[in-house]
Amino acid sequence: MSVRIIPRLDIKGPNLVKGVHLEGLRVLGKPERFARHYYEQGADELFYMDAVASLYGRNSLLDIIERTAREIFIPLTVGGGLRTSEDINQVLRAGADKAALNTAAIARPELISEAARRFGSSTIVVSIEAMKKPDGSYEAFTDFGRQSTGMDAIVWAKRAEELGAGELLVISIDREGTGEGYDLELTRRISRAVSIPVIALGGAGNVDHVLQVIEEGAADAVSLASVLHYNFIKCAECLEDDYSAEGNLTFLRREGKGFGKIADATLPELKRHLLAHGVDCRWEGGWAA
């Protein structure tokens, strides 16, 4: 079975943003632009995360989903601030294929079964934000790691599967935005505890980290942002028009600043690295490196 590589795009209003470690959100550009680039370079799916998840931002998010779905023919998962079946219905109608639930599912687990029943299990992804505790166990969090739940992340993963989740997105709060690598133990423990696919997210700083979370973390799919985004914004020819308006880019492109521990790569570079190490992933000729 091939492993899926899923670029993650954090969206705030009309913009793609990236949380730079300890420095807050920075605007990187138009999400559709990045989405198209990744599609052409062999992304297996895309994941849009509403970084603000406010009611006011919803229409702009729906527009972005619709424009993406019209011209990009790979699966699109949308998450962030989806609270009801109707919220899920809206993003699916706009053209998303799957909806990722976290906060609302923890507050009311029946939302998972209701949504799975109405839209099909394979449409419902439950995202689990987890933080490691001093005793070595993992606790589930909500609201981008700000809100503790007192719930064991592995117990919650099994419960989400029972309720009808089609996939689990496992996010390490400790690693998120650090570029220090995925939390392999977290991913492995959840992946071994359930029979549904597990997508690892949080911490990728280079192509070896991706290989590790597949081989040692038993991830069925891998989502990542900075490694890919930094590569795309570095390449000047990708950035003609609409970037002039984005003040943050000069800052980000200045060598070293903002890139932290990230060794950027293109999708074909990442996939070639995996294939060279015996990991099966979708490969087609013609993808530019």
Partner: peptide, 15 residues
């Protein structure tokens, strides 16, 4: 069953 052990169900992804 795959080369690395039990495979997930549903079968999700590119084949």
């Amino acid at each position: 069953l795959g080369p690395r052990g039990p495979l997930k169900v549903p079968h999700v992804g590119w084949n």
